[in-house]
Amino acid sequence: MQLEPADLKNSITRLKRANGQLAAVIRMLEEGEDCQAVVTQLAAVSKAIDRAGFSIISTGLKACINEGESADVDLAKLEKLFLSLS
């Protein structure tokens, strides 16, 4: 299933923000910043990426339901997608 970029605008924005956060974490490591601050920022990046992933899956499910494809959804594949984010 293909998803429309317009439907994923929030996920794209979240991932772009996470990309900036990750660059900041790398910079912090290179500059010898405090370990606690680095780990805190790294956790924020991880959470942002996870939320984007769940949002993308949710958007796909909504699209399937709205297009009447819900009967064709492979539940095992969907479960694997969700578990890959945990």
Rank of each mutant, 00 (worst) to 15 (best):
M1S: 13
Q2S: 13
L3R: 10
L3W: 04
L3G: 09
A6I: 08
D7R: 11
N10S: 12
I12R: 05
T13S: 12
R14M: 13
R14Y: 03
L15G: 08
L15Q: 08
L22T: 01
A24P: 01
V25T: 04
I26G: 00
R27A: 15
E30L: 06
G32M: 05
E33S: 12
D34S: 04
D34F: 06
C35R: 13
A37W: 02
V39L: 15
T40V: 14
A43P: 00
A44K: 05
V45A: 10
V45R: 04
K47A: 15
A48W: 07
I49M: 14
D50Q: 15
R51D: 12
G53F: 07
F54E: 00
I57Y: 04
S58D: 12
L61E: 01
K62P: 00
I65M: 12
N66Y: 05
G68N: 11
E69A: 14
S70Q: 15
S70N: 06
S70W: 08
V73R: 01
D74K: 11
D74Q: 09
L75A: 09
A76M: 08
K77L: 12
K77R: 13
K80G: 00
L81R: 08
L81H: 11
F82D: 00
L83D: 09
L83P: 00
S84Y: 03
L85P: 08
L85Q: 11
